[in-house]
């Protein structure tokens, strides 16, 4: 069949059969070869990624609440119960606050460190490595370490106690400023700040590396020209460097957002759900619902909501970068 197509199509579609057929033929055999090489991975991705996403979506609309599967259709029931649930409402608040704080601090701190390192300081690579090292650890290790560092009765608090500061870190249950939204109190859970510190400690090195690459990519001539025109260093930074770093910032935000929206291991190792669910995240809730209480339908619903929340960030980025390529 393939043979027939190869011989017939060029003659039918090309107006000038004398010169084109040969080239076209080579191109289509190349294409066929490429497809045949890509096919296994396409099939694998289709089944193991998109197939399973579809399956999760299907389960999330079912009545599968026990060990035995019950795949009868329940509509959006699972989603409705979730959104009325105190814990899930807390989770949504926590993810939102955590994501904003985490991305803001990582981007700002990474940029500041990158600018400082870019000043051609001595032992530059040493500093670069020091900041990058935490990234080599897993979130589990970070979680355990910071759990003890910020434990109210050990770690740095022994120092703060001497100064008369009584910091409760991740055991604090206050939410600032505390506006009632639905069943939960809206605002910034103070306990999350401890988690943000740990996450920032781990991921700042990554944003530093990205910003450093961005800074090195700005041609020296541009800055030189601005200096010749009498621009101050601050003006150069604001008018030249910052705008040119914008694509880097976008990438940092995208990468950090997908980490923070899916965060599980850091929370699991460091704080757990926390008193009154002040440090709970959808990932932890999903794990417990699915694998502890065997409520596969609700677990699936949480997973789908997490997927959608990440998609809100990723999809516009993909569209944007596709346009950029064209």
């Amino acid at each position: 069949m393939a043979e027939a197509n190869l011989q017939n199509t060029p003659a039918r579609t090309q107006p000038n059969p004398k010169t084109r057929p040969k080239r076209k033929k080579i191109r289509s055999t190349d294409r066929l070869l490429a497809i045949s090489f890509l096919l296994p991975s396409i099939v694998a991705v289709a089944v193991f990624v998109y197939g399973f996403i579809g399956w999760t979506g299907y389960v999330s609309l079912s009545k599968w609440h026990a060990i035995l599967p019950d795949l009868s259709f329940a509509g959006l029931e699972n989603y409705l119960t979730l959104f009325q649930n105190f814990r899930f409402q807390s989770d949504l608040r926590n993810t939102l606050i955590f994501t904003i704080l985490f991305i803001a601090v990582v981007a700002l701190l990474g940029q500041c460190l990158a600018v400082m390192i870019d000043k051609k300081i001595k032992a530059e690579s040493l500093f670069r490595n020091i900041f990058l090292f935490p990234m080599a650890l897993s979130f589990i290790v970070t979680g355990v370490v910071w759990r003890w560092v910020l434990n109210p009765s050990s770690g740095v608090n022994l120092l703060f106690d001497k100064l008369g500061w009584d910091l409760k870190w991740y055991t604090d249950t206050t939410i600032w400023p505390g506006i009632e939204i639905g069943k939960v109190t809206g605002g910034i859970p103070i306990a999350l700040i401890a988690v943000v510190i740990a996450a920032v400690w781990q991921m700042t090195g990554f944003s530093l590396a990205m910003y450093l690459a961005g800074l090195r990519g700005i041609p020296e001539e541009l800055k030189e020209a601005a200096r010749m025109d009498g621009a101050s260093e601050f003006q150069i930074y604001r008018k030249i460097i910052l705008p040119m770093l914008r694509p880097i910032t976008l990438s940092v935000i995208i990468i950090m957002a997908h980490i923070s929206l899916k965060i599980f291991d850091l929370i699991y190792a460091m704080t757990g759900s926390g008193a009154n669910f002040v440090t709970d995240m959808p990932g932890v809730y999903m794990f417990e619902t699915t694998f502890r209480s065997h409520n596969y339908a609700e677990g699936g619903a949480i997973a789908i909501i997490m997927l959608l929340s990440v998609a809100i960030f990723i999809v516009p980025y993909l569209i944007h970068s596709r346009k950029g390529e064209q």
Binding site: F86, N276, F277, N295
Partner: peptide, 18 residues
């Protein structure tokens, strides 16, 4: 059953604070 226990645990967690 575990499904009940999960809900009780959730209620206890809220109660300890509130």
């Amino acid at each position: 059953p575990e499904s009940y226990l999960t809900k009780v645990n959730q209620a206890v967690n809220i109660f300890v604070t509130q």
